[in-house]
Computed example of a mutant assay.
Amino acid sequence: MSEHETSPRTTGATVLTLVAVACAAGLADVLRRRRERKRGSGHVEEPPVHMPHGTPTIPRQRRNGSPAEAVRLTEAERDAFAGLVRRFGEYG
């Protein structure tokens, strides 16, 4: 086997190993979070939302943080923001 054949094989094997390790770590994290959630914070989890054909989708998200904040803008700030929105709308 020549040197030119071993380098890509070694690189490919390394990449596949890293991908497998990353997948295993992600799976372990998901399982750990599920176990912690079941163990309980005393919160009753909402059932997942179902599509019309009965296919489960992502469960509803809980709100744990502070309530949404509101900032009052002056008329000049509102106009400036509206101008930015219009400019971004032209490019996107």
Rank of each mutant, 00 (worst) to 15 (best):
P52L: 09
V21P: 00
I58W: 12
P59I: 04
I58R: 12
H4S: 15
R35M: 12
R34W: 04
A22Q: 04
V30H: 12
T74H: 07
S41N: 13
N64T: 09
V49Q: 14
R39G: 15
E3K: 07
T74Q: 05
P59T: 05
P67G: 03
T74L: 08
E77G: 08
R35P: 01
T10L: 11
T55N: 06
K38C: 08
P59C: 03
R78A: 15
G42D: 01
A25L: 11
V85D: 05
V85Q: 05
L27R: 10
R62Y: 14
A68L: 10
E46A: 14
T57P: 03
T57M: 11
Y91T: 11
A24G: 06
P48N: 04
I58E: 11
G40R: 06
S2V: 03
A13V: 01
A13C: 02
A20P: 01
S7W: 06
P59R: 04
P56W: 01
E46H: 11
S66H: 10
V15A: 14
T6K: 12
L16G: 12
Y91P: 00
P8Y: 00
V49A: 14
P59E: 02
Q61G: 02
E69T: 15
H43V: 15
G42H: 00
R78M: 15
G92E: 07
P56L: 02
T57A: 13
R37L: 15
R37H: 11
P59Q: 05
E3Q: 04
T57R: 09
A25W: 07
R86T: 09
L16H: 10
R34S: 12
S7F: 09
R62T: 11
E69M: 06
P56Q: 01
L84G: 02
E75F: 09
T10Q: 08
R72T: 15
A25S: 09
G83L: 07
L16T: 10
G92L: 06
E75S: 14
S2N: 14
G54T: 07
R9T: 12
G83H: 05
P48W: 02
